[in-house]
Amino acid sequence: MSRLRRFVAERHWIFATTAAGGFAYAGLASLTRPFTVEADVATALPLFAAVLTMAVRVRITKRPASVMHPNCDSQRVPRSNRWSLMWVTMAIVIACWELYTYMSSPRSEHPTLSTLIELLDSTRIGKFSAFALWLALGCYLVLR
């Protein structure tokens, strides 16, 4: 069982409170507009919290040797197989398409990923969803 799953199973009330707090924060953040101080602060706070949490975790925990070496046979680090190439290929294709659209002109005819994100952020529910997803992703990465 992954550490995240164990954490959720053992401390579900903490998880529920954190999730509720995250949704509430995403709701508040969805009220802000980009290029404003409010948006800067709303985005910067989770960044600082993530850096702080990471720093504390690095200080108080030492990773087992099995996790330090990615080529080990430990079950804590799942072995990748040739099908990992599927994800690498997908990432390369998306990166190439992003580069192509970024370099093409007129820019209005070639929307990039940033344009799509702007479209998503243009509605309140879209920004709320995107912000909540971003917060969840941050928690996932910090708690790994």
Binding site: P34, A39, A42, T43, A50, M54, W134, G138, L141
Partner: peptide
């Protein structure tokens, strides 16, 4: 730790780019 740090940096950049600037 390096990989985790790089992914965190990517996450930070994504948030700043999408919601702040």
């Amino acid at each position: 730790r390096l990989g985790q740090g790089l992914l965190m940096l990517a996450w930070m950049w994504l948030g700043w780019h999408a919601f702040a600037r």
